[in-house]
Design a protein around this nucleic acid. Structure first.
Lengths: 222, 222
DNA sequence: AAAGTAAACGTACGATCGTTCGTATGGATT
DNA sequence: AATCCATACGAACGATCGTACGTTTACTTT
């Protein structure tokens, strides 16, 4: 199984993690399974962003994808493992859509703005049919202990750490005034999440609100 | 059916709405039904704050309360009506626990602080076993059109309007510097929601974070 | 006293849930 | 060539879901 480990997927470099994994597979059977798992998980992310991870059902997925219920069941073994695969897939997509592109921008304020713009696009686009996958599921699982909750929490912590890190960089570089990076990151994430919900409820100004809040925090120091 | 109407329950005065309704009932049968409905809905709020409104099941409630499934079904007619009753009950509880007590404080900054303190207690206390009922369910239903979504949205809009109103008062009274009340309300609500999730994930400092953010917004003008 | 109505229950329905078993197929290993 | 293994399926399982029907009980109305 090699060892992908779990040290902050959001900070990890290297393009497209599971493509690399698939490239190492020589056995055609395992490759087929890996592809099938990936495709199923990707569709499941859409469903879960709409109905929630808890509302996911194997039968629903089978119907959507024209597969058999038992086929999906054998591929993932158990529903919880399916949910974990869905979380991992959503993490990959988030990495590709939001985090990685922002690395083109220089660290600090510029990268924070890039992250925000990417995030707004990510939340507005029906990439995930139901909006932000994390916002939809963190609340669902916050009172439901288990591996799925842990995985969601881990991603959230990584995301907060990513924002706080850029904020600290911006402070150290003198781009913005001294500030409690963790608290500001907390606020920014809160605004992201609230904007996602506002978007889902038809508030077309949600993106603009995010930009205005961000402007407030990233004002040049004097 | 008299006419309770729906003009911003959060702004409405008068103590304890459904007690008043019950007082007007002379028919013992209807009174019994009203009481039963109320008790079921109250327990369902707890369950829904834990598992979500979507995860609510009549059978589960029947088991918890020692009633029959069909008994509950007849009392509410349909599951959607049950969900609406649960939303209404949660609104009443929120009104009693957070909004009404804060009216003891004078309008403006003082009342905002009172609201925040009340909210922190409300989120920390296992009044609702799973934390903030609204935070748990707004995300669930944001992509699920229907009366339940509308009811949740209505409450959320009332809540935002309540905060924004106090902010405007504080600005007009010269307590705080000029600010976009709607945007600040948006941010405060976002922080409340994020703090609720943080609390659910064991972050003991969530309450402190809310206070620090609030302090930032309520700093005296100059 | 008779008729009517709402609450509460038991039972049953069709549907869907997650999971398991047996089996067939095709690639890998020996 | 024979053996092993992972994918994929059909079928079936026990459980639970929301809902509907019929009946009993208690209270109100006529």
């Amino acid at each position: 199984m090699s060892e992908p480990e779990q040290r902050s997927a959001l900070a990890d470099p290297t393009p497209s993690a599971d493509d690399r994994v698939e490239a190492e597979i020589s056995d055609q059977r395992l490759l087929r399974g890996a592809r099938a798992r990936r495709e199923i998980a990707r569709h499941a992310v859409d469903v879960a962003s709409l109905e929630g991870l808890g509302g996911l059902s194997i039968g629903r997925l089978a119907g959507d994808l024209g597969l058999s219920k038992s086929g999906i069941a054998t591929l993932f073994g158990t529903k919880e493992k399916l949910q974990l695969a869905v979380v991992a897939s959503a993490g990959e997509a988030f990495l590709d859509e939001v985090v990685r592109p922002s690395r083109a921008a220089p660290r600090g304020v510029a990268r924070l703005r890039a992250l925000a713009e990417r995030w707004i696009t990510y939340a507005e686009t029906p990439l995930f049919a139901g909006g932000c996958f994390w916002a939809a599921n963190l609340a669902d699982f916050d009172s439901r202990p288990g591996p799925v909750r842990d995985a969601l929490l881990r991603h959230h912590a990584d995301w907060l750490a990513l924002i706080a890190g850029e904020l600290r960089y911006a402070v150290d570089a003198g781009e913005i005034a001294e500030a409690d990076a963790d608290l500001v990151a907390f606020q920014l994430d809160a605004v992201f999440t609230a904007a996602n919900i506002a978007l889902r409820f038809g508030d077309g100004e949600a993106g603009a609100k995010v930009r205005r809040v961000l402007d407030g925090f990233l004002a040049p120091r004097d």
